[in-house]
Design a protein around this nucleic acid. Sequence first.
DNA 1: AGCATATCCGGGGTTTACCCCAGCCAATTG
DNA 2: CAATTGGCTGGGGTAAACCCCGGATATGCT
Lengths: 237, 237
Amino acid sequence: MILIADDEERDRNWLKSLLTENFPDNMPVEEAHDGQQVVDMAAKLKPPLVFLDIKMPHLSGIKAAEQILNNLPNTGIIMLSNFSDEVYVRQLWKVVPPNGVFGYVLKNASNEQVVEATKAVLSGDCWIHPGIARVIQRTQNRATNLTTAEYEALVCIALGMTDHAIAKRLYLTEKAVQSRLKSLYAKLGIPGRGESHDTEFNQRCRAVFLSTKRGLINQSELDDWESKLSQETKAST
Amino acid sequence: MILIADDEERDRNWLKSLLTENFPDNMPVEEAHDGQQVVDMAAKLKPPLVFLDIKMPHLSGIKAAEQILNNLPNTGIIMLSNFSDEVYVRQLWKVVPPNGVFGYVLKNASNEQVVEATKAVLSGDCWIHPGIARVIQRTQNRATNLTTAEYEALVCIALGMTDHAIAKRLYLTEKAVQSRLKSLYAKLGIPGRGESHDTEFNQRCRAVFLSTKRGLINQSELDDWESKLSQETKAST
DNA sequence: AGCATATCCGGGGTTTACCCCAGCCAATTG
DNA sequence: CAATTGGCTGGGGTAAACCCCGGATATGCT
């Protein structure tokens, strides 16, 4: 039994036919179309393998993985994603248990790669798409990997908050915020005011641009953060 | 004869089988896998209908459409896109001739919608995906539609440039740049310094955030702009 | 012509974002 | 234990971003 979760019908059909052809022993293939549903179905069906699209309504694939692994730690998880965004790799690393079994394939993967990943995870190995190998590399390099503090600050400036607003929200001094931002700029390799020769940068906006380019943040994640933010400010009034 | 262009094999196959089933009279279906190739093939084959993915290597679907329509103004064009980004609608409006025939469908469209769009364009009508109707609305509303000047400034701040750098690049005064930005902020509905009660915003970053959210700009477009920028600065030294 | 709009430019302000420097505390590591 | 690292705090400064105002030009519409 294999459980797949994706909100796009076309992708579900593609994956389902691929699996039924290549893994007839693991039939049937069950389908879910959002994050909450796949968690419920996994609890009942206890499948050995679950495919999760990251971008799904109600509950993201990553959070769904977290809940599934809470109940059934031995479930094999294969994440499907459209992009090699570093945010997701960050989050995954926290969710997956130390010796957890999982795979990560991009949606532009060839059929052979998906089959390969499925075989690997079913037999207890990991399979990581080559396209995100360098991303994982970066998340473990001390000089470029962002700390949680820096990441929080990054999200805030990407939402367009001022230093003052960030300080209030994170219960910090403005100086502390600026300290976080300074080390963030350094890790992103953004030149300071005097050090640039050809082009001058507004570090704040430049940091957002580079981080988005590198997949450290993306729009759908920022939208989540913003809705949390507006909920909090609403609650505090 | 129908020509389709998409760099993703899976999408090509999906579209091709859909067309051969529903439009047997218009066989065969020819395929191209990037923007340059589809322009060349269109010149030779002179198909009445061309499907274009917007995001393609070498040449975007929009620029490909421009070149195809230059040679063969009566070609029917149907754009395929993953997102309802306002940038693309902006650009498209300039490229398509006043009475040009074209369609615009999002990639999450149902099979029925694609068939419907194809019928419409083949018989000389337009077909616009309902999801971008409101976007088109916005591009024609005076209060929210950005002028070219404001759009240029928006791209520059999104790349992380300072007022001074923007002025140098666009051959303007810093005051002129700030004037553009001011009206940009107004159209995006970003509150000024005194006017906000609950949340304070850094207008510059906030503008980038909101514009990205609304699809006025997106990362791949910005990457194009940045490569142009670095070419120019290289040439001027 | 009169009117509105878009754009650029100027003067003269305030606030915010960034700069350098130094020190303190906590947790980790050899 | 010392040594290092990550993080917060502070003083005191510069420059960039934003504010309000008025004025000039050009364009297009009625």
